[in-house]
């Protein structure tokens, strides 16, 4: 046991905030794992009604995928200290994030207006709750992006600290991937 690394602190370690984010993502995954496994269990119960997703959710999928791309390029631009490009791309990402939320709302409305309400015990009630909770997580991401947006435009912050940008972009990719999982889940498991 005397072979332990003495130079342990000199190793290149992840920034604690980034690490905290990763652990937090694990926690969010467990929450949605709990909900989707509840869905699978519930599917075997009597009077289960499967849900067909409206086309709108395909559009929102495209939007959130695109926003992942923009946040990725924004991060790259920040790394190159190309602040003009970074500002533009961050703005586009915020816009796409908001568009995603709007599209989700439209999708909910379509389902709701076709007579699928909260009473009942089929896929659609799960859909409202699971997509709703995902939407809340996206909103959290939008707030983080907005903070970065404000920082990028306020004069005093000339900081080139990568950590906040990386934390926000990792989180944004995460809610994107989470959405893809949920979307495919609802497509495949009826």
């Amino acid at each position: 046991m005397d072979t332990v690394m003495i130079n342990d602190s000199q190793r290149k370690k992840m920034h604690p905030h980034k690490f905290t984010l990763w652990v937090g993502l694990g926690s969010i995954i467990m929450m949605f794992a709990g909900l989707t496994s509840a869905y699978i269990v519930k599917r075997d119960q009597p009077s289960w009604i499967a849900v067909d997703m409206p086309l709108t959710f395909w559009y929102s999928t495209a939007v959130i995928l695109l926003s992942s791309l923009t946040v990725h390029t924004a991060r790259a631009a920040f790394k190159e200290r190309n602040m003009l490009k970074y500002r533009r791309l961050i703005s586009v990402t915020v816009f796409l994030g908001l568009l995603f939320i709007v599209l989700q709302y439209v999708g909910f409305n379509q389902l709701w207006n076709s007579g699928l309400r909260m009473n009942g015990s089929g896929g659609v009630q799960f859909l409202y709750i699971i997509f709703g909770l995902h939407g809340l997580h996206v909103l959290g991401g939008i707030i983080a992006l907005l903070v970065m947006f404000i920082n990028a435009y306020s004069r005093r912050s000339r900081s080139y600290n990568m950590v906040p940008v990386e934390v926000a972009s990792t989180y944004w990719h995460f809610v994107d991937i989470l959405w893809i999982y949920l979307f495919v889940f609802f497509l495949v498991i009826k």
């Binding site: 003495i6 130079n7 342990d8 370690k13």
Partner: peptide, 8 residues
């Protein structure tokens, strides 16, 4: 992440 030097 925050252990001091030598604290494996």
């Amino acid at each position: 992440n925050m252990r001091t030097k030598g604290m494996s």
